[in-house]
Nucleic acid binder design. Structure first.
Lengths: 195, 195
DNA sequence: CGTCACATTGATGCCTCTCAAAGCTTGTGG
DNA sequence: CCACAAGCTTTGAGAGGCATCAATGTGACG
């Protein structure tokens, strides 16, 4: 889909570079358009009134960011580059035009948004599991491949934030699961599920 | 948008009636299409492995349900009628055809999905507020009108579930906020925010 | 080879869940 | 019109679990 959009919008895409730590956009900025991440890692987060921040998503190459703000005046979250990143900016108006003239592209974007909705609901569902062990196990199960192996892309600390736990709580849950025999940890960032 | 879809798909829409307690679809059912709620109240929920259920959304007349499953083989949640309800079913294939032939309809559906993404992210953000008082206050602020008045449509119990709290925790949070002077409760289901 | 961030484990306190019970509202049927 | 039932509302007491603070180990990277 990234490819299709790039072909269709070749002339309208603008390359944006964000060194590690830089922001593609901030909460409240006027929505310029959709970002397609080509290189790096970008985190979407939101600031709460009490000064904490909430990780909404961590995007990797091939993903698009801020689809939702295509129909909003302002960005409702902040995009921080975690590594030196390169993205393509697809201006809002051009994308709207494209949606009208290229149903194929519209359908792809639509499917992508639909998937996001499902993922968000899943994440919300995980939060309803109160016990740290169970929440973590459920999250690991969702990420496991056919062999029951999970290799986390980020750090455990990041996963903790995504699950709404402190890192300490997550580490304790990990070791408890291991002690119970529910998981095995062959490497630092890999676990095997023992159903 | 409901209206537009109804005009464009008049011949393809099928009226579905669900008495209170009945299910429009269950988790795992083959995805038939999109539901447009005309009358009643329908709750989307998902069952967790430990037997609990998670409220994903409570839809009211004018809303559409299960947009995300337009691109999925199966429904990933369950839709229960809380009151006697009437919905229109827009079959998946017909909608796909419509998306290709009527960009206007596509754009509307797109905007709707985008809004859902934002709402879900907001809900997720609320969950990151640990303290019940603060989470509730944030939720109330999001629902307040210009005067700072909030009238909940459902029961407090329902709001508790939506916020990931037990009803007891929510009631205690309410009375604490009232004691602190942060809110006033003129009626059972209405609060005034005193910023 | 020093620094920095992640990883790991310990101790303590607070907060929410859980169980329990009683008051209150709403609706229903006799 | 009353009485009863069912579900929501409200408050209490106790326990368990996670956050918090703290300290040390470990790995990566310049």
């Amino acid at each position: 889909m990234l490819v299709l959009l790039q072909e269709l919008m070749a002339d309208d895409l603008r390359r944006v570079r964000a060194p590690s730590g830089a922001r593609l956009f901030r909460q409240g900025d006027a929505a310029r358009g959709l970002f397609l991440l080509k290189v790096g890692k970008v985190r979407l987060l939101r600031h709460t009134s009490d000064g904490n921040e909430v990780i909404l998503h961590t995007a990797r190459p091939g993903e698009s960011l801020a689809e939702a703000s295509l129909f909003a005046e302002h960005y409702h979250c902040e995009a921080v580059a975690l590594e030196d990143s390169v993205a393509m900016l697809a201006p809002k108006e051009r994308l709207h035009a494209l949606l009208r003239t290229h149903p194929q592209a519209a359908e792809l974007l639509f499917a992508r948004l639909a998937r996001q909705v499902r993922e968000l609901r899943t994440q919300l569902e995980l939060r309803n599991i109160r016990r740290a062990e169970e929440r973590l196990l459920a999250a690991l199960r969702l990420r496991a491949d056919a062999n029951g192996a999970v290799t986390i892309g980020d750090t455990w600390k990041d996963l903790a934030a995504e699950l709404g736990l402190t890192q300490e709580a997550l580490y304790r849950a990990l070791s408890r699961l291991e002690r119970q025999g529910a998981i095995i940890r062959p490497a630092t960032r890999t676990v095997l599920l023992r159903s």
